[in-house]
């Protein structure tokens, strides 16, 4: 294992110290491992709290700031944070208009956020609503699985719901916007290599040099199938076609197309992928209204990418275009 770390046991703590120094506009509570907007709580605004296992940076802490999240909770690598962290974050961002928990659909995350909401309800008057993100078409959504995983759509939900909260909308309205984005978004990912969890010291799974894993999750979970390495145009087809067959993307105001890097893939390759994805969408008669290309929800040092498509409407596009000022996403400010 070659990594820029000190003690593997201190990876989260060391990274949070660096984040705090690099972004003095944020408040980092090192004891609770939460990152909070410097001006929180913003009076009269719905607070947005997310969080999850670490290793997906910039998600979630990199999206804390005006127009996006009010706080993020950092768990151990690939392990859900505990309710105490979520309760502390909820209290820190409660500006009197309620708090929305944005939760990726993993068993641990869902249960810990559920407990946190119960604890908040038991000890304070803060109103909490939750939205579960489950956009990964690689997982069959059935009674026989834990349901689809939350992946790329999480970034889009945090941006769009964040903008809705910034407009001063109510908790119910912000939650509805978040649910709409989740309902209209679908994702599919692919790995060229495994990732290495610092505490484990070795790759999570073996993937031969000439093979890639299609339908990968963001924790090195297995995908749908393993296939020989292929050119970018064929890879784009493998990612886009299951998305298009899962939801009808025609007939709206086009899509927000998001090509995400898994951590170790260079931007030049992501633009090659974006070119291929765009051509496939054009062929399918689906206009691209907005785009996002870059590593925004990663899986440590995994090489690969994911594609997320969000069916857009006027409201979604207006909120997408609204100003945002966070470490990892900044525009219009």
């Amino acid at each position: 294992m070659k990594k820029l770390i000190n003690d593997p046991a201190n990876v989260i703590a060391d990274a949070l110290h660096g984040l705090a120094l690099a972004h003095p506009e944020l408040r980092v509570d090192h004891e609770n491992r939460i990152v909070v907007r410097g001006d929180a709580p913003v009076q009269g605004k719905v607070g947005l709290v997310s969080g999850g296992g670490s290793g997906h940076e910039p998600l979630h802490a990199g999206f804390v700031g005006r127009g996006m999240l009010d706080a993020a909770c950092a768990g151990e690598v690939f392990t859900s944070p505990v309710p105490d962290q979520m309760v502390a974050a909820t209290k820190a961002v409660d500006g009197g208009a309620g708090v929305l928990h944005i939760v990726k659909n993993y068993t641990g995350d869902v249960m810990n956020f559920e407990l946190a909401a119960e604890m908040v309800a038991a000890e304070s008057g803060t109103e909490v609503a939750s939205v579960i993100i489950d956009d990964d078409v690689a997982v069959q959504d059935s009674l026989y699985t834990a349901g689809r995983r939350g992946v790329g759509a999480t970034v889009l939900v945090e941006k769009i719901a964040g903008a809705a909260a910034e407009e001063g909308r109510s908790l119910g309205e912000v939650a509805d916007v978040a649910r709409k984005v989740n309902a209209y978004a679908r994702s599919m990912g692919l790995a060229l290599t495994s990732c290495t969890v610092p505490a484990a010291g070795k790759p999570t799974f073996d993937l031969p040099d000439d093979q890639m894993e299609v339908g990968i999750g963001i924790h090195g979970e297995p995908g749908r199938r393993r296939v020989p390495v292929a050119p970018a145009n064929e890879i784009a087809e493998m990612l886009v076609s299951p998305i298009l067959s899962d939801l009808d993307f025609t007939g709206g105001d086009g899509v927000i197309a998001f090509v995400n890097g898994m951590g170790a893939t260079p931007l030049i390759e992501l633009y090659i992928m974006y070119n291929e994805v765009s051509q496939l969408l054009a062929k399918a008669g689906i206009p691209v209204a907005r785009s996002l290309v870059g590593p925004y929800i990663t899986s440590l040092d995994m090489a690969g990418c994911s594609v997320t498509l969000l069916k857009a409407d006027d409201e979604i596009l207006r909120l997408w275009d609204a100003p945002v000022n966070t470490p990892a996403l900044r525009r219009g400010v």
Partner: peptide, 10 residues
């Protein structure tokens, strides 16, 4: 609940 995280803590 405070120390375990994941699914087994809750």
């Amino acid at each position: 609940i405070s120390k375990v995280g994941g699914a087994s803590g809750p």
